[in-house]
């Protein structure tokens, strides 16, 4: 389904722009990752279309979107695994296209799949990936030990990875990208398929990395993860970055902090034709049984409620809530992120 509104973003200086106009200026930017008008098509399918964003040192940028939105394709282009059809990627001021070796030295990638050697132990995996990232044997061994402690896996360090639980594998999978202490960490849905406790541990670890100055690009389709972990969020769907900003900025886009969920028989209803309705509300979603609207007028919620109870359709229930990222996604795409 096509977006209801024109693609727009809130840039790092707080302004709101069309997503395609965000083009960080290389010379002035201190960002550890700069993505400019990145595009990629697979045959007739436009997987990524003119995506632009930045990630600064110590920042966590969440790329939120449903499965197939273009998150992994975007990360693959940043990591140098896919060649973009158009656009540029700079990692630590090095172009991934023209100076990949330098860009990759600043990069750590945690793939969505568990990319580990199951026959090797956790420690051996860490040391191997450390060596591949350019560390000497002694440094790799030392840092592997540190990471095993930090990831709470020291007591299982000598076990083959195939004997690990899903959460433990995820942690080692994450650790393997950190041996060389990258300035930028790409995390592609790193918590898929693990229990809440393991997920919480990983998210906490990631916050710690950011606190130490590592820039993090985090893709997810979990709303709660994006809301709780990512100070800045980009919403992507059908390859397009529809909006980005802080959670508050994105909530503001759909009408401040009030959403009304009205239950009733909305079959055939035409909200646009109701007197005074469009001046105070905007429709986020309308189904046969439910109407989700955002209050656009700056007034007391009680006044909104009074107006809603006088609508020409009988309302059986009203819920007032703060807009979530899902509501933002709903407004931008007309469909639920969870669908």
């Amino acid at each position: 389904m096509a977006p209801r509104t024109a693609p727009a973003v809130v840039d790092s200086r707080g302004g709101t722009r069309d997503a395609r106009s965000v083009e960080p200026e290389p010379a002035k930017s201190s960002a550890i990752l700069r993505v400019r008008r990145l595009s990629k098509a697979f045959g007739p399918l436009q997987a990524v279309a003119e995506v632009s964003f930045e990630v600064g040192p110590g920042a966590i940028y969440g790329l939120l979107g449903p499965n197939g939105a273009g998150k992994t394709t975007t990360i693959s282009m940043i990591a140098g695994l896919l060649r973009p059809d158009a656009g540029e990627v700079f990692v630590d001021h090095a172009s991934v296209a023209t100076d990949p070796a330098r860009a990759k030295r600043a990069l750590g990638v945690v793939p969505q799949e568990i990319a580990l050697y199951e026959e090797l132990t956790g420690r051996e995996n860490l040391e191997f990936w450390g060596r591949m990232a350019g560390l000497d044997a002694r440094t790799a061994r030392t840092r592997a030990g540190e990471l095993l402690d930090a990831l709470s896996l020291a007591d299982r360090a000598r076990d083959p990875v195939k004997k690990y639980s899903g959460g433990m594998k995820r942690r080692i999978n994450l650790g393997c990208a950190l041996l060389h202490r990258p300035k930028l960490l790409l995390l592609d849905e790193p918590t898929v398929g693990i229990d809440p406790q393991a997920r919480a541990n990983i998210l906490e670890f990631i916050r710690g990395l950011a606190a130490q100055g590592t820039g993090i690009l985090y893709t997810t389709h979990y709303l709660d993860e994006a809301e709780s972990l990512c100070p800045r969020i980009g919403i992507i769907d059908h390859g397009r970055l529809l909006a980005e900003g802080t959670l508050a900025e994105l909530q503001e886009r759909i009408g401040g902090d009030r959403l009304f969920v009205l239950e009733g028989d909305w079959e055939g209803a035409q909200p646009g034709s109701w007197p005074g309705f469009t001046a105070s509300f905007s429709v986020i979603q309308k189904t046969a049984r439910q109407l989700v609207i955002a209050a656009t007028a700056p007034r007391d919620p009680a006044e909104d409620l009074r107006q809603l109870l006088n609508l020409p359709v009988r309302v059986t229930n009203v819920t007032l809530k703060r807009p979530s990222l899902n509501d933002v996604f709903l407004q931008l795409t007309g469909r639920d992120l969870r669908e």
Partner: peptide, 14 residues
């Protein structure tokens, strides 16, 4: 298939 090759490709040696 296990994506370890892809992971390797993200590292400097190529």
């Amino acid at each position: 298939q296990q994506r370890t090759f892809s992971r390797f490709c993200t590292l400097p040696p190529g």
